[in-house]
Design a binder for these strands. Structure first.
Lengths: 219, 219
DNA sequence: GTCTATAGCTGGATAGAC
DNA sequence: GTCTATCCAGCTATAGAC
């Protein structure tokens, strides 16, 4: 399968698509500044100059790559939350809200083979950076949907002050990002019993854990 | 105070110490590959060649820097856990275990002015990287203490299968790292009501949240 | 649109004087 | 131990032929 190809199949994808796919993987593995345009162009089997032609600059490439992936995630979140609120009459249960938030981030678009895990890693890296560039593209992609989810959580947890919902939302972000990063740490510590790369297992454990955290007694 | 100095006071610290202090901050801000030896040497007001002389290479510098900071954290964790087990007769309460694990990571050595937050950020960045170098230095610094804490958690949660303790430990790591990273995201989403940089506030909210997650019904 | 070629820097590392 | 000077591989970006 394409997911196992180290080098992109040059026959089926456009130059643009090949650049995006390789860049996503290399940025995820080595970080924004750990990979050069030469590595991207050679692995994608495109000319070095074509990256500048299609994306303007390295930052332009990363920014476009990020928003192409992030938009469907934010959309899926909102859609799942809308569906849940329609089903439950405006007050969705906590577990359903949490899963609506996390599931789209972990699965990503199935139309893009092999892109999923790489994008999760990339996103997790950017989310732990303090730099303006990362903060800006994350804000642009996710502010709207995240605020919407905070509202839903406030409604689902009537006894909990808003600021505590916000703290707990922050803890949820950390849990989600570290799972997406899949750094291999817990595999070592658990002697391979845990695999954060397995989306369904991860969700099965994460959602009840987070729900209990959100429901814990207000301070 | 030294914490507010952008440039290290060249009079009081040795060349080695100045390099370490500046490197810690720059690596934390811009990542391992986002900062060059030239930036470090000029900001630390040392000669470029002195970095190679004292640390061998850029990787050597980062590795030494990391283990110098990490060792006291791992030691403090073990000491706090030992104390708790002595106090409670071998079975420390869950909240005490969690705080013993997280507090040393968030406060770091007070002997190093300004280093604390920078090291937390650096550590969070390395922890979300899949690269071998990061995994190796994290393993070296924290495997022993982390395994010890997993044992303590298994003992504190008799009804919970070990693999679930491990999953929840992974979620705890994510929560802790994202708080240490202090990316500014929750400040935006909460209109500045939350500040993960405030250690006591962060702990006050985090410990009960995590404890509830650990105590949630086994699957 | 696609390519070659290259400008103009900056990267890490090191040789060798003192 | 500390410095200057330098190597050369890599970087992003672009000019200009086709």
């Amino acid at each position: 399968m394409a997911a196992r190809e180290a080098v992109v199949d040059a026959g089926k994808l456009s130059v643009r698509e090949r650049i995006l796919e390789v860049a996503e993987r290399l940025f995820a593995e080595h970080g924004r500044s750990g990979v050069g345009l030469r590595a991207i162009s050679s692995e994608a089997k495109v000319n070095l100059a074509s990256i500048a032609y299609h994306f303007g600059s390295k930052e332009g490439l990363l920014e476009e790559l990020f928003s192409l992936r992030a938009a469907p995630i934010a959309d899926a979140r909102i859609r799942l939350l809308d569906d849940a609120e329609a089903t439950y009459g405006g007050a969705a249960p906590l577990e359903v809200i949490i899963e609506a938030f996390i599931r789209p981030a972990l699965i990503i678009g199935p139309q893009s083979p092999a892109g999923g895990e790489a994008f999760g890693r990339l996103r997790a890296r950017l989310a732990t950076e303090p730099e303006k560039f990362s903060r800006r593209i994350l804000s642009k992609a996710f502010d709207k949907s995240s605020r919407r989810f905070i509202e839903a959580l406030v409604k689902a947890l009537p006894g909990l002050p808003r600021v505590q919902v916000e703290w707990r939302f922050h803890f949820m972000l950390g849990t989600m990002y570290y799972t997406m990063a899949n750094s291999g740490r817990i595999q070592v510590l658990s002697d391979q019993r845990c695999d954060p790369g397995n989306v369904e297992f991860a969700l099965k454990h994460m959602v009840p854990f987070l729900a209990a955290g959100f429901r814990s007694t207000p301070l």
